[in-house]
Amino acid sequence: MKKDFYEILGISKSADAAEIKKAYRKKAIEFHPDKNPGNKEAEENFKKAAEAYEILSDPQKKAKYDQYGHQAFDGGGGGGGFHGGGMNMDDIFSQFGDIFGGGFGGGFGGQSSGPRRAKGSNLRIKVQLTLEEIANGVEKKVKVKRKVQAKGVTYKTCTTCNGQGQVMRVTNTILGRMQSASTCPSCGGSGQILDGKPSNADAHGMVVEDDTVSIKIPAGVTDGMQLKVGNKGNDAPGNNSIPGDLIVAIEEIEHEFLKREGENLHLDLYISYPEAVLGISKDIEAINGKVRIKLEEGIQSGKILRLKGKGIPSINGYGNGDLLVHVNVWTPKNLNKEQKQFFEKSLSEENFIPKPEKSEKSFFEKVKDMFS
């Protein structure tokens, strides 16, 4: 089981942004590669601290984590979380360089020098899904505008860092002269700068092109969840660069009849007074078509029928939720003379006097059961 992010940083859930950043910097310095050369355990702790900070420092991601825990960012391609397990150390240094203040190098085991692979910026889009698409999973093709390297663009070795991607500096301290490495400001750490470009390219040798991206969306995604499509973001300059990612935010289209609650679905079913008295079989709206249910004689308004497995699939593969049918007996407002006489006569009839059985649950008990 994944360790709690607050526990990793050694803070409480009430910690503010400044406390979170301070706690992360403390952990990052403790497990930093320059202080723990060749130590694999320190490397893992360093990555865990970076993962925890990436989530807790973002107010939206922090709110999701506080509500759903690690599940909010697992499955379905990521859920918009941090992919620390798949990142190399250069990625972490480039993302959190401001935390270290440039006082350390950039790798483990003495590999703090050398160019890193430049990564392009991410693109973000929204994809709207119907409840049916969410229940069954779907493949969507979307058009995005991506920055790509122009044809004919060339790069050369950066003269500031001589292709190393880093510049060294020496600082005088009370402990003596200390040497540290920081990312080259001219090439951004790639070790290369622009040499020649076609006229239609920008200052970095990039052009904007339309691209059609196929996105496989698993069943069970939720509104606001984010999926990652690797290498479908913008390109970065350089011969050894890699594209960024395409971040896909899910937007759920509200269904006309069905209301979603996690993996369960709710349906309000209105029946007439005669149908409630006599009982009836009815076709109701389910997520994948009509379903026939039987209503017993004398069914009461407020009765909840649970149809097992007729809800939304769990994104983690734990089966389907249920469809809860809420029975509402519709009371007529306009009666003709004959109908009115019938009910007036029935006022004193014993069968029409309410006699709830002990097994009948009250409204508050039903609400309690529904949320338990």
Score class of each variant (00 low, 15 high):
Val327Thr: 07
Gln300His: 08
Lys310Asn: 14
Glu285Trp: 09
Asn334Arg: 14
Ser301Asn: 08
Ile312Gln: 05
Lys303Ile: 01
Lys310Gln: 15
Ile293Pro: 06
Leu323Trp: 09
Leu335Met: 12
Gly321Met: 05
Leu323Ile: 03
Asn334Gly: 00
Gly317His: 01
Arg306Asn: 11
Asn316Tyr: 14
Ile304Ala: 07
Glu296Tyr: 06
Lys290Pro: 06
Leu324Cys: 05
Leu323Val: 03
Lys294Leu: 01
Gln300Phe: 09
Ile287His: 08
Pro313Tyr: 15
Asn316Ser: 12
Lys290Leu: 06
Asn334Glu: 15
Gly321Cys: 06
Asn320Cys: 04
Leu295His: 07
Asp283Leu: 12
Gln300Met: 08
Pro313Val: 11
Asp283Thr: 05
Arg292Ala: 13
Leu324Arg: 14
Pro332Cys: 11
Glu296Lys: 08
Asn316His: 15
Arg306Gln: 09
Gly302Glu: 02
Ile315Ser: 14
Val325Cys: 04
Ile284Val: 13
Ile312Gly: 04
Ile304Val: 14
Gln300Asp: 05
Ile299Gly: 01
Ile315Glu: 09
Ile287Glu: 08
Gly321Phe: 06
Ser314Trp: 12
Ile299Ala: 02
Pro313Gly: 12
Leu295Ser: 10
Asp283Arg: 14
Gly309Arg: 08
Asp322Pro: 01
Lys282Gln: 03
Ser314Val: 09
Gly317Trp: 07
Ser301Trp: 11
Gly309Met: 09
Gly302His: 02
Ile287Ala: 06
Leu324Ala: 06
Glu297Thr: 07
Leu305Ala: 05
Lys333Trp: 09
Trp330Asn: 13
Gly319Gln: 13
Arg292Thr: 15
Gly321Trp: 07
Ile293Arg: 08
Arg306Met: 10
Leu335His: 03
Pro313Glu: 10
Glu297Asn: 10
Asn288Cys: 04
Gly317Arg: 04
Arg292Ser: 14
Lys290Cys: 03
Thr331Pro: 00
Ser314Thr: 07
Lys337Arg: 12
Ser301Val: 05
Gly309Lys: 13
Ile312Tyr: 08
Leu295Gly: 04
Asn336Lys: 05
Ile299Val: 10
Asp322Glu: 06
Gly289Lys: 11
Gly311Phe: 01
Ile293Met: 04
Lys290Trp: 09
Pro313Phe: 14
Asn320Asp: 08
Tyr318Ile: 01
Ile293Trp: 10
Ile293Asp: 05
Val325Thr: 04
Gly311His: 03
Tyr318Gln: 13
Glu296Phe: 00
Lys290Thr: 14
Glu296Trp: 01
Pro332Ile: 06
Val329Tyr: 06
Asn336Pro: 02
Ile287Lys: 08
Gln300Thr: 07
Val329Cys: 06
Leu307Ala: 00
Gly302Asp: 01
Arg292Phe: 00
Asp322Gln: 02
Gly302Leu: 03
Leu335Gln: 07
Gly321Ile: 05
Val325Ile: 13
Gln300Asn: 06
Lys308Phe: 08
Lys282Asp: 02
Lys294His: 13
Lys294Cys: 03
Ile287Tyr: 09
Leu305Gln: 11
Thr331Lys: 14
Asp322Phe: 09
Gly289Tyr: 07
Gly319Asp: 10
Pro313Ile: 14
Gln300Ile: 05
Lys337Cys: 04
Ile304Gln: 13
Asn320Thr: 11
Lys310Gly: 01
Trp330Ile: 02
Lys303Tyr: 07
Val291Cys: 05
Asn334Pro: 00
Leu324His: 12
Gly302Pro: 00
Glu297Lys: 15
Lys308Cys: 00
His326Cys: 00
Gln300Val: 11
Ala286Gly: 14
Val291Pro: 02
Asn328Leu: 12
Asn336Leu: 04
Ile287Leu: 10
Leu307Gly: 03
Val329Ser: 00
